[in-house]
């Protein structure tokens, strides 16, 4: 029984972290049309920074791994630094790669940035211990007087707190004038530019906000699993989250949650229960093959996802401040009752 509880709490943590990733990508691509195929490097820099600033100095007796930013900061600070690192890296990458260009160019350049970052971090051992990565990251909530199983659930709860907070923040952002500007930029870039929106600044802003969320998700992830290495952040990991938000439905948050539930959680976990065939590792390879096929199939049969974005409709009831006679129907509609 406790094995199941342990398993399900682990899934809950991964689900929460993938929801954060999905929110980040959905804000960038679903709302603003900015293609971030380098998503995983922002999550990854968050993970590395959270790990290195919690692990303590990398010199002296017993030091077996080398990394920069070595420090042993108390509990919430590594997570804050991870978030900031994600945002900062996004700012730097965004500054030179977010020029006005075709979206496919943009995507390809992000993908190349992601591949090259992976090669550099793998090759240069002095950065984050090369291909072996960092291990032994201390558990952040260890001050809680609970057993291992309760710790699992406590951590899942901790991740969900962030999910809800980030969701509320991003929902507020995307309903704000800034969010409407993002959609305008996505749908009609030239028209948006013509009414005075600064496209370059908007793109950079949404890129940094997404980078902050990505850094946070990386920090939360590494503090849970306790280790991070280049094996954890191939370009395919970004593709899984992209598949999730495409399957769920772009441009709305119900779609993100559904997609993350279907693709990384249910889909990738069900395969753990299938009988192993062939040599060890074959199933892992085939999993990625099927993810690729799933994405291609989704784009063919349901290109707007299972829960498509609702297009805004300018009805009398929606246009509250400008149509005072519609106030009562507007309120009723907002409160979910049928309009008389």
């Amino acid at each position: 029984m406790s094995a199941w509880s342990y398993y399900i709490s682990t899934l809950a943590v991964y689900f929460g972290i993938d929801v954060l990733s999905g929110i980040s990508l959905n804000l960038q691509y679903g709302y603003a049309g900015v293609v971030n195929l380098a998503f995983i490097i922002f999550q990854s820099v968050g993970a590395y920074v959270a790990a290195a600033t919690a692990l303590g100095p990398d010199t002296g007796a017993g030091a077996f791994q080398h990394y920069i930013f070595a420090a042993s900061l108390p509990f919430p600070i590594p997570l804050v630094l991870a978030t900031l690192a994600g945002g900062a890296l996004a700012g730097v990458v965004g500054l030179f790669s977010l020029r006005r260009m075709r979206r496919d160019y943009q995507g390809a350049i992000m993908l190349i940035v992601s591949l090259i970052a992976l090669q550099v971090v793998t090759a240069d051992v002095s950065l984050f211990n090369g291909s072996n990565g960092l291990t032994g990251v201390p558990k952040p909530l260890s001050f809680l007087p609970v057993g291992p199983l309760s710790y699992q659930w406590a951590y899942a709860g901790w991740v969900f707190v962030f999910c809800v907070a980030v969701y509320l923040l991003v929902r507020w952002l995307s309903r704000s004038p800034w969010g409407r500007a993002l959609k305008a930029m996505r749908d009609q870039e030239e028209a948006a530019s013509a009414i005075g929106l600064n496209i370059t600044v908007l793109r950079l802003q949404v890129f940094v906000v997404g980078g902050l969320i990505a850094g946070l998700s990386g920090g939360l992830l590494v503090e849970y699993i306790g280790a991070w290495s280049p094996g954890a952040w191939g370009y395919a990991e970004t593709f899984v989250i992209f598949t999730a938000i495409f399957v769920g439905g772009l441009g709305n948050y119900r779609g993100v949650v559904l997609g993350v539930l279907l693709v990384p959680v249910v889909f990738l976990q069900v395969t753990q229960f299938l009988p192993q065939i062939g040599y060890p590792g074959l199933m892992d390879s085939l999993e990625w093959v099927v993810i690729g096929l799933l994405f291609m199939l989704c784009l063919l049969v349901r290109p707007r996802g299972i829960l498509p974005e609702r297009k805004p409709v300018a009805t009398e009831a929606n246009a509250f401040p400008f149509a005072t006679p519609g106030l009562l129907p507007y309120l009723r509609r907002r409160l979910g009752r049928p309009v008389a």
Partner: peptide
């Protein structure tokens, strides 16, 4: 063009990991 690029990326994943298998 963008959707097509994503399709080729998905296909690349299928080819790469198919070859890994």
């Amino acid at each position: 063009v963008f959707e097509m690029m994503m399709v080729t990326l998905g296909l690349g994943l299928v080819i790469d990991y198919g070859l890994q298998a």
